[in-house]
């Protein structure tokens, strides 16, 4: 069973590295961002698998956290790319 998890983890990490290639290639910034978002998601999978490997539930909070953070990150990056300003003072002006 552990071997299975191990192999899965390796596969996930390999996918991450594959996507990393896209981060470097670009060509546009949104490309990189999308790739990063993908990495974030895979990171979640990886940590989930790692928690099984390490046999500890204490990293599960990390999973939810990464999900939250990657969402916030995605939102702020896309706002930055779209508008250059991520927090507006007053939208209705």
């Amino acid at each position: 069973m552990m071997t299975f998890i191990w192999v899965s983890l390796i596969l996930v990490v390999l996918s991450m590295i594959g996507i990393m290639f896209r981060v470097f290639r670009g060509p546009s910034v949104p490309d990189r961002l999308i790739a990063l978002d993908g990495i974030g998601v895979m990171l979640i999978s990886a940590i989930a698998l790692i928690s099984i490997l390490f046999d500890t539930p204490f990293f599960i909070d990390v999973i939810l956290l990464i999900a939250i953070m990657s969402f916030i990150g995605t939102v702020s990056f896309s706002k930055f790319i779209e508008r250059g300003e991520i927090i507006e003072r007053d939208r209705n002006r």
């Binding site: 916030i72 927090i87 003072r89 007053d90």
Partner: peptide, 15 residues
Amino acid sequence: TGAIVLLLLAFDLKT
């Protein structure tokens, strides 16, 4: 803080 940042991102400071 992150939650509030998200609010700020989606809405604006005044709101």
